[in-house]
């Protein structure tokens, strides 16, 4: 299987390189793998995720995602790369003045799909995350768990190559968390989507084989 993500001697820092968060990290992730990244608070988990979707440029080494080096990528290429990613946030990042259905089809809207296709897909995706009856509601009318399911549906909308999730269950109860893990397992298993999840702790009930990286003392290490 080909690598979807390759980091070699990767260094990530803030304040123009003055504040190093990750230093000289090397790892690779193949297509269809499910990966957990854990580590203590402030270790750089979210920083690594930001770098993976191009919000933070590496200050050293290489970070190649989908064949593109994020250290030297043009804005237009980065935009294109992001359309092949599904990103899930702890705080959901839904557009509150849009309906649930419109939030879900945002990636399709960006890709220029027709309104008919968007409507059909919205219905399919919301049914998949068991929120079909909430299509016309607004995000703030839903519970946290439901909002995160909308976030997952949005991430899956365009059958992304990779899903990046930052503490997707951090604000949720056990029941809602399990629903979210199920959805992501399904995506990985059925669509061969690479899923990379940054989390404080790995769920106890998890049926798929997965890889586990830990970030500690600025390094990224695989736990076997």
């Amino acid at each position: 299987m080909s690598n979807v993500i390759t980091a070699s001697h990767l260094t990530l820092a803030y304040d123009n390189g003055a504040k190093e968060i990750i230093k000289d990290a090397s790892f690779s992730i193949k297509k269809g793998e499910f990966v957990f990244i854990t580590g203590p608070s402030g270790s750089g988990k979210s920083t690594l995720l930001k770098a993976l979707f191009g919000q933070l440029k590496p200050t050293g080494g290489n970070l190649i995602v989908g064949g593109l080096d994020l250290a030297n990528i043009r804005q237009s290429k980065l935009q294109e790369l992001r359309t092949h990613m599904g990103i899930i946030f702890q705080d959901y990042k839904l557009v509150n003045e849009w309906t649930v259905a419109k939030n879900v089809v945002l990636p399709l809207m960006i890709a220029g799909y027709s309104v008919d296709v968007q409507n059909t897909q919205a219905h399919r995706l919301l049914k998949h995350v068991k929120l079909a009856e909430h299509a016309d509601k607004f995000p703030l009318e839903l519970s946290g768990g439901e909002q995160q399911r909308v976030g997952v549906a949005r991430a899956l909308a365009k059958n992304p190559v990779v899903i990046l999730a930052d503490e997707p269950t951090g604000n949720l109860d056990d029941y809602s968390s399990n629903v979210i893990w199920d959805l992501m397992e399904n995506a990985c298993q059925q669509l061969e989507t690479t899923v990379l999840v940054v989390t404080h702790k790995i769920p106890t009930i998890f049926s798929l084989p997965y890889r586990h990286f830990i970030i500690e003392s600025k390094g990224v290490y695989e736990v076997h």
Partner: peptide
């Protein structure tokens, strides 16, 4: 800004 940020994360071009 919230809407524009979310759209940027998902790769929306500037004009959109």
């Amino acid at each position: 800004r919230e809407r524009m940020q979310v759209m940027e994360i998902f790769g929306a071009p500037l004009i959109l």
